[in-house]
Design a protein around this nucleic acid. Sequence first.
DNA 1: CTGTTAGCGCGTTCAA
DNA 2: TTGAACGCGCTAACAG
Lengths: 337, 337
Amino acid sequence: MTGIDDVARAAGVSTATVSRALRGLTGVSAATRDRVLQTADSLGYEPSSSAAHLASGRTMAMGVLLPMIERWYFASALEGVDRALRAAGYDLIVFSLGGSGTNRQRVFHRSMLRKRIDALLVMCMQLTPDELADLQALEYPNVIVGGHVDGLRSVSVDDAAAATDAAEYLISLGHTRIAHLKGGGAYGIDFDVPRRREQAFRDTMARHGLPVRPEWQAMGGFRFAGGKIAAGQLLDAPGERPTAIFASADEMAFGALLAAHERGLRVPEDLSVVGIDDHEFAEPMGLTTIRQRPDEQGAYAAELLLGELQGKARLDVPRIQPHELVVRASTGPPPSS
Amino acid sequence: MTGIDDVARAAGVSTATVSRALRGLTGVSAATRDRVLQTADSLGYEPSSSAAHLASGRTMAMGVLLPMIERWYFASALEGVDRALRAAGYDLIVFSLGGSGTNRQRVFHRSMLRKRIDALLVMCMQLTPDELADLQALEYPNVIVGGHVDGLRSVSVDDAAAATDAAEYLISLGHTRIAHLKGGGAYGIDFDVPRRREQAFRDTMARHGLPVRPEWQAMGGFRFAGGKIAAGQLLDAPGERPTAIFASADEMAFGALLAAHERGLRVPEDLSVVGIDDHEFAEPMGLTTIRQRPDEQGAYAAELLLGELQGKARLDVPRIQPHELVVRASTGPPPSS
DNA sequence: CTGTTAGCGCGTTCAA
DNA sequence: TTGAACGCGCTAACAG
């Protein structure tokens, strides 16, 4: 393996000069810099990140801790984080709980991040007090993405506003009999996003003097299959049927769409459905939804940490991430019945 | 930060003994080992991976290079890789091309992996000759997952057999007018999986003396939206309609299902659809498909590399990964017309 | 079974 | 603008 002294020798300078030239520091004449760059390139030299870490204290890597990867939100956010990090020359180290929730003990234990990262992004996780303490003991900059933990900064949409906008839109169309497909309880990891959305839904209904019927609140577990089953039960129940379903996430909304189809209900004539996310499938499925961009949230969070590592002032209250109503074919006025 | 000498001093032994005890090497008395473990724990000591790397030559990290994260196959495979690595105490470093294909130059350039990893998994990428050379110059163990590159080992299903099984199943139901939704051309990264599946489809049709009509071959780009559009065009075309669609991936099959529904075609009475993958949505959508398990493929590939790092013999021909027909509600005999 | 010592490959002083 | 020398924290080889 070719090291820094090989370059130094070949370029006829000291290792210190090579180091300076390669990192673009000042105090190197243009001539020597060019020479160093050229010989480094021709020798195929690349510095060892471990040696650099040891000498400088910086790992040039960032960690992401998440409950699981294979979920639209997480995978998209990861993509955004990766994009931001790569642009800054940082590496991305991924720690997934794999949805298990069982290897949950000592998540933030020192062993999980063996002095390998400069900062940590935590995605959508509800933390126990012990875990919170562990995280803070880790002492490097951190931020929560897509979730909320007391005492830590979050980068996310305004979940309450997003849910409110969805419910308000249904109400503006004339709906009064609105059901709610709730998320949560599915990741093996609770987090409060579903609670915030549900509360906002309830508040919005109350503000309009509309009832929130217990039998129209169902748990869809944030997934297609769960949403389909829950929506099916809603629609099959005796008595009045809702004219609209607000799903706390698109995947559950897809399930609702399918459940309606299977029962011969027309969307939106008989039933309107609105979700949150703007999942890739929402457009082809014609789902009206509240768009959010997990990738941009991830990138924003990564850049925030990157900024702090470069000495920028700490941002105690990150910018709320935007959301937006996207109207498609799954919503319309309620049936006139 | 507490280092190894802090532990050594506190335990009254040398740093070498601490190192040995902590790594579970032989040649340490039970008593000393316990004492060391205990003081290390109480001091909250965790070794620096960089220092360990420098001294030992091992990074205890593995890299994964993939075209993008937010895609069912990649995210699932990543999950499996992570699971295997974490069990072995290895870290996972992710390099995503972000679907761009533009920052494609010098993918394997030394700078991409600054001596940070012990082995590399490459997912589903078609490599240029230059890239292949770069990869091999990287000199650490590698393996391709879910794709094929001449000269490199692959962990994947038998794509030809999977596509054959799907087509054979349709044929066994009595279908003769079978359309094909092809993948490919979508990732910004070509790879030969779609070609293998298409070829197997053609071969199977030929073997049964069935025609492969050019107007029934459509490009769905491996995605829901693309599959929906392509299937819609197939179904809207004047002249005879296919009685079955074989989609090279579930996401396109979902699009076909939707296109059929929108045209009032009943599935499977008027049209049968079969996919490949067993995507999470396949079960609730009632899609007949060929199941594969990307997570297990990823885990298997990771374990293969792990084994080699531990000195096991190199496996030149990894085990073909299993696939399996899963019959659901989207397939049936062709209409008797 | 345990301790001593010499690097691993850089970044970073400090002096020139 | 450049170079020499030290040390980051650990593992490995050797000696005891």
